[in-house]
Write a protein that binds this DNA or RNA. Structure first.
Length: 264
DNA sequence: CGTCCACGTCTAC
DNA sequence: TAGACCTGGACGG
């Protein structure tokens, strides 16, 4: 379930379990041998530390030595990617593809059943994604309202909300909840919707924050590392998986309540 | 058994 | 704008 909230929780989790840990190596599973993509191990590397940050659906790990970041790795977690710290003496979970190993033979593992997760050594955040609605709300809003004349916004709002160039971090459950809470007709063109219903943009910040506080959705296999009210997220979800639905033009299921549809 | 479905990108006609 | 990329859970016969 990784959308904005879950990616942010993963960053918190990584920071929590990597705190004070001294890493010594990076290794890859058999299946990921061909996907090292620029991740190399400097031979002079002794020990390093790891810190994480997220922006929308992008997750960035920084490898640090002597207070200096010497490598940044950007991750897109796909549909099922998540992280698990495995203490010394325990086997990495099935479907682990990438491991950061620390002193004592424990590891931080990237676990991903469907193998849609991707990673890449980078200098900075991806240029293909817009500003994060939670971390950089002002820029996020500006990037949308300043580009409303573009042809992209001729499309229906339910499609544009999934465009990561403008709505970084919004995925299939968040678009359903945003449109529902905004009482927005999902089939209205995005330009009209965004200029007449300011709740949409505001909810792009508020709802991911709420989902984050509730611990996000429960990925199969993925243990939320933090205290969260049991069932809180499921109760919070009011539209996704609960209402009328169609398959959108991109093959994704769009969930909405009939009451949102204002035109025929 | 089989078919359908999944919280996401990518690239190739 | 289809598919491709993947595994596995839910559910039907």
């Amino acid at each position: 379930m990784p959308e904005l909230a879950e990616i942010k929780i993963m960053a918190d989790y990584i920071n929590k379990v990597c705190q004070e840990k001294d890493f010594t190596s990076i290794s890859f599973s058999e299946s990921a041998q061909s996907r090292k993509l620029g991740i190399t191990q400097p031979t002079d590397l002794q020990i390093f530390r790891i810190s994480a940050e997220s922006r929308g659906k992008e997750l960035m790990l920084s490898l640090i030595q002597g207070g200096e970041v010497f490598m940044k790795i950007s991750f897109s977690m796909g549909m099922s990617g998540h992280w698990r710290e495995v203490p010394p003496g325990f086997e990495p979970p099935k479907h682990t593809h990438l491991l950061f190993n620390y002193i004592g033979f424990g590891s931080l593992c990237l676990v991903d059943v469907r193998r849609f997760a991707r990673w890449k050594v980078v200098e900075d955040w991806s240029q293909n994604r817009g500003p994060c609605p939670v971390h950089d709300f002002t820029e996020f809003k500006h990037n949308i309202l300043g580009n409303l004349e573009k042809r992209e916004f001729n499309k229906p709002i339910h499609l544009v909300l999934m465009n990561q160039k403008y709505f970084n971090g919004i995925g299939n459950y968040l678009r359903a909840e945003i449109l529902f809470h905004a009482d927005q007709d999902p089939f209205m063109d995005a330009r009209t919707a965004l200029s007449t219903n300011p709740a949409i943009i505001e909810l792009c910040e508020r709802l991911p924050k709420e989902a984050y506080v509730l611990g996000g959705g429960q990925l199969k296999d993925w243990e939320n590392p933090f205290e969260a009210p049991a069932g809180g997220f499921n109760e919070w979800m009011q539209c996704y998986g609960r209402s009328n639905h169609i398959v959108d033009k991109n093959g994704r299921t769009l969930w909405y309540h009939d009451s949102q549809v204002k035109t025929s």
